[in-house]
């Protein structure tokens, strides 16, 4: 970045702080965001200014040579150029950002985002959006929403706010640029990044006696027969003493492993390292199909497994202060 650009960006930063109404650094707003006249800005582009100068020269020439045909056509082109400003405004007016959807990713990955733009009852021929240094160009046909896809880089776990986006158009002649800032209030959940390698959690067998009663093949209780109970589980002898069949209620077969993951089990580590390690353990357990429990300073996730459990644990880790 050159010195001029640096100075310019300093000025802009200051302007954003001091004159938010001018730079239109709007605070985040809830979806849907509908563009209306008070938030659409129009300025001529460089080309528009150049063309205006050219038109002025043409008018002056036509007047000087009292050439009425040239004057008439110059006026026509000038009026068309002026009219293109209104067209540019109409291209943005009434457009709505209706939805933002993000996939859940791990910090450091790019998060794929989709943004829905609803055109209302008007076809918009050429729109562009600047978001996070990328520029997207698209068109929307009336009444048909368009979905933009982009990827945002993520840096840290937790909720990531949406960056400010600029929706603009230079339609139809490139002489005027109409734009509006969009700052949707939408948070994207970013899971913590797992540490690359580290020790496994403590051997589950050592914890065998801790936690809730360990399930096994031992009968845990007797209950009444229900259709569908396997015959071999019927407690024939005991049933003989009753009027109905009793069934030995077996606990579920023991899973291969069960990990008790705990925030407290790690000593001498800072929070982020603990979160990274727990994230790795949760990942590994989930992938291997183990059951696991997760104890955080403020809450406990009991032993379970599956996608649902995984998402709950990762969300809690991501939002850990």
């Amino acid at each position: 970045m050159t010195r001029v650009a640096r100075a310019w960006s300093a000025v802009l930063r200051r302007a954003e702080r001091r004159l938010p109404s001018l730079t239109r650094l709007r605070s985040p707003e809830a979806l849907p965001i509908v563009l209306h006249r008070r938030r659409i800005y129009i300025v001529p582009t460089g080309f528009g200014l150049g063309f205006t100068v050219l038109l002025a020269v043409m008018v002056l020439g036509a007047l000087n040579y009292s050439n009425n045909s040239a004057l008439l056509l110059t006026c026509l082109v000038g009026a068309a150029a002026a009219g293109s400003m209104l067209v540019a405004f109409r291209t943005l007016d009434g457009i709505a950002l209706t939805a933002i959807r993000a996939q859940t990713v791990v910090a450091g990955e790019d998060v794929p985002l989709t943004i829905d733009i609803a055109p209302g009852k008007r076809t918009r021929s050429s729109l562009q959006m600047d978001v996070a240094g990328r520029r997207l160009a698209f068109a929307v046909v009336s009444d048909v929403s368009v979905t933009l896809e982009l990827a945002l880089p993520t840096e840290q776990r937790g909720y990531m706010a949406m960056p400010r986006m600029r929706l603009f158009t230079t339609w139809p002649l490139g002489m005027f640029r109409a734009w509006s800032w969009l700052h949707p209030e939408h948070k994207v959940l970013v899971y913590p990044r797992a540490e690359a390698f580290g020790p496994p959690p403590r051997d589950p067998s050592l914890d065998a006696d801790r936690g809730r009663p360990h399930p096994g093949d031992e009968p845990a209780a007797l209950r009444m027969y229900r259709p569908g109970d396997p015959r071999r589980q019927i407690a024939w002898k005991l049933s003989a003493r009753h009027e109905f069949l009793l069934v030995k209620d077996m606990e579920q077969p023991a899973p291969e492993a069960e990990w008790q993951l705990s925030w407290q089990s790690m000593h001498g580590m800072d929070n982020e390292s603990r979160i990274a390690r727990l994230a790795r353990w949760v990942n590994e357990a989930h992938l291997a199909g183990y059951r696991w429990s997760l104890a955080l300073p403020d809450r406990l996730f009991d032993v379970a497994q599956g996608d649902e459990h995984f998402h709950r644990c990762m969300t809690a880790l991501a939002l850990q202060p």
Binding site: A80, S125, S126, L127, Q128, L136, A137, F138, A139, T169, T170, W171, P172, L173, G174, M175
Partner: peptide
């Protein structure tokens, strides 16, 4: 004018 219009991206 058509040339100018055709320059606009995304159409």
């Amino acid at each position: 004018l058509m040339s100018l219009r055709s320059l606009e991206p995304g159409q």
